[in-house]
Amino acid sequence: MPADTAVDLSGRSVLVTGAAGGLGRLVSRGLADAGARLTLVGRDEERLRALGIDGAATASVDLTTPDGPARAVQAALDAHGSLAGVVHAAGVVAFGPVAEVDDDTVDELFLVNALAPLRLLRAASAPLTEAAAETGDAFLVTISGVVAEKPTAHMAAYSASKAASWALAAAASGELRRAKVRVVDARPPHTETGLATRPVAGSAPRLPQGLRPEQVADRIVAAILAGERDLPTSAFGG
Rank of each mutant, 00 (worst) to 15 (best):
D8N: 15
L9Q: 04
S28D: 09
R29E: 14
G35H: 01
G35C: 10
A36H: 02
T39C: 09
L40A: 06
I53K: 03
D54Y: 02
A56R: 04
V61K: 07
V61Q: 01
L63Y: 12
P66M: 08
P66C: 05
D67T: 15
A70Y: 00
A72R: 06
Q74G: 04
Q74W: 04
L77K: 08
D78W: 13
A79T: 10
L83M: 12
G85F: 09
V86A: 02
H88A: 11
G96I: 02
V98N: 03
A99D: 13
A99N: 09
D104E: 15
D104A: 14
V106T: 10
E108Q: 15
N113L: 02
L115R: 14
P117Q: 02
L118C: 05
R119Q: 12
L120R: 03
S125N: 00
A132P: 07
A133P: 09
A133D: 15
F139S: 06
G145E: 09
V147C: 06
T152N: 12
M155S: 13
S161L: 03
S161H: 03
A163E: 02
A164W: 01
L168F: 04
V184A: 06
D185T: 10
A186D: 09
E192T: 14
E192W: 03
T193Y: 06
L195I: 15
L195T: 08
T197P: 00
Q209L: 13
G210H: 05
V216H: 00
V216T: 15
D218N: 05
E228Q: 15
D230R: 15
F236R: 08
